[in-house]
Design a protein around this nucleic acid. Structure first.
Length: 447
RNA sequence: CGGGGUGUAGCGCAGCCUGGUAGCGCACCAGUAUGGGGUACUGGUGGUCGGAGGUUCAAAUCCUCUCACCCCGACCA
């Protein structure tokens, strides 16, 4: 039945191709139509490209190697910027005493409904229940109170990479899961102005800079409305990006917590003028949701499209051969090319699976690898390779000696092209972007 | 929490109305030919039909209970 359907579709596609003079038809029946059912398209792509797998625990997900490799690239890019702006990494425990969460009224009200709570340890009822952290302001506030004594101790500029748990009612892989990975920065400052500067600096110099340059996602920075702000914050800022379905997604938040948590946890310091003062704190976070954002912004009918700068694999080499002698010949050429590209700093892989080339082409397009190199007997004899772009399928024959340089040029072009396309898409959709206009208006008070 | 729906092989499904001991596609394994855009043919592996109880000579199928998941709504990051 499915075979019939496949054949029928292929025939249709062939006719279309013949009629319009386009290139080869594609098989996309296993991915839902992006324009018709975006939510299903998203799920299909996530699972078929092996970014993630379903979890036996409701609302959670298993991040597969390909998805995790992207997360590692995000971590690297984000971590570099966090450190470049003067922060250090540390780590706080997963468990938080329930009483901590109750110390900040607005905070507990906001997070209580979605807490996972541990009441038994080692077979015995605990004297105090422990919350699995939904976010770490409270346990960190408690600790910072001990670390801060003098104005000379300030500022504290720390960040942690961790997992958090929020018992969400409706979940979607990467976008909203009961457990997710993130970084959360927590800083303490001497003055309100300094805390505000930090809050906004993180949003622009760390978050926006990374997401726009590395993930090729244009964002709009703005301030969250009072109802949308972080539970317990004075002011919350966020960067919002437009997804492929025309909807906005919060891609990162930065909160000026004012003195709310300092008050709740007694973070005080003796200032230069000899008086005790409450400190000013901030917190900010980005999560594995960024993976979902990248998928939704850049993906197309064929599947994922990885921004070259973070792509786990930037160039995939598909060897082509018929007979064993050819295979050996091609293998040598592939190994040599792989060496060249690696030496040039490119992330490259070759695919020697026993599948037809066509199968591999589609498979790697589904996974979104930006560049493909085809190397067959004909290429070996001419000391060249066929270089193909994932985005527009442009093919070119490139002499072996020029491959690395040409690939680098194309990757840069593709990266820029992805950003430009996403920006153009957003601008063309202003009619659905009331939220963006609102955000843009709020941007007036940006530094 | 209210309304609707679905549980049969790793995935997607048929079979149920009208009981007779489980089937199709994909995937997987083997072989042959193939290989520059999802390759074809042949053979094969794999399921106590969500769970419990009942009716019956006989239950995936009928009855009762139960569990889980999905969609819509409500609630909420």
């Amino acid at each position: 039945m499915a075979t019939k359907k496949k054949t029928a579709q292929q025939d249709d596609a062939s006719q279309d191709a013949a009629a319009t003079g386009e290139q080869t038809p594609r098989f996309v029946e296993d991915i839902a139509d992006k324009d018709d059912d975006f939510a299903r398209w998203y799920q299909d792509v996530v699972y078929k490209a092996e970014m993630a797998d379903e979890s036996p625990v409701r609302g959670c997900m298993i991040i597969k190697p390909y998805g995790y490799a992207l997360w590692e690239a995000i971590q690297r890019g984000m971590d570099d910027r966090i450190k470049a702006t003067g922060h250090e990494n540390l780590y706080f425990p997963l468990f938080i005493p329930m009483s901590f969460l109750q110390k900040e009224a607005e905070h507990v009200e906001g997070f209580a409904p979605e807490l996972a709570v541990v009441t038994i340890g080692g077979g015995e009822e605990l004297t105090e229940a422990l919350a699995v952290r939904p976010t770490s302001e409270t346990i960190i506030g408690h600790t910072y109170a001990k670390w801060v004594q003098s104005y000379r101790d300030l500022p504290l500029l720390y960040n942690q990479w961790a997992n958090v748990v929020r018992w969400e009612k409706r979940t979607r892989p990467f976008l909203r899961t009961s457990e997710f990975l993130w970084q959360e920065g927590h800083t303490v400052h001497r003055t309100e102005a300094e805390a505000e500067t930090e809050t906004r600096m993180i949003l622009s110099d760390v978050y926006t800079d990374f997401v726009e340059k590395e993930l090729a996602i244009p964002v709009i920075q703005g301030r969250k409305s009072p109802t949308e702000k972080f539970a317990g914050a004075l002011r919350s800022y966020s960067m919002e990006a437009m997804m492929g379905d025309g909807k906005a997604l919060q891609a990162g938040t930065s909160h000026n917590l004012g003195q709310n948590f300092a008050r709740a946890f007694d973070i005080q310091f003796l200032d230069a003028d000899g008086t005790r003062k409450l400190a000013w704190t901030t917190s900010w976070g980005t999560s594995t949701r960024l993976i979902g954002a990248a998928i939704m912004v850049h993906g197309d009918a064929s599947g994922l499209r990885m921004p070259p700068r973070v792509a786990p694999t930037q160039v995939i080499i598909v060897p082509i051969w018929r007979k064993e002698e050819e295979r050996a010949l091609v293998a040598d050429a592939v190994a040599a090319v792989e060496r060249d590209l690696r030496a040039a700093g490119l992330r490259v892989k070759s695919d020697w699976r026993d599948q037809t080339p066509g199968f591999k082409f589609n498979d790697w397009e589904l996974r979104g690898v930006p560049l493909r190199l085809e190397i067959g007997p004909k290429d070996v004899s001419k000391d060249q390779a066929v270089l193909v772009r994932r985005d527009n399928r442009t093919k070119e024959f490139v002499p072996r000696a020029d491959l690395a340089a040409r690939a680098q040029t194309l990757l840069a072009e593709i990266q820029q092209g992805m950003y430009d396309a996403a920006l153009a898409f957003r601008k063309a959709r202003t009619y659905t972007a009331a939220t963006f206009d609102e955000l843009a208006a709020r941007m007036a008070d940006r530094p």
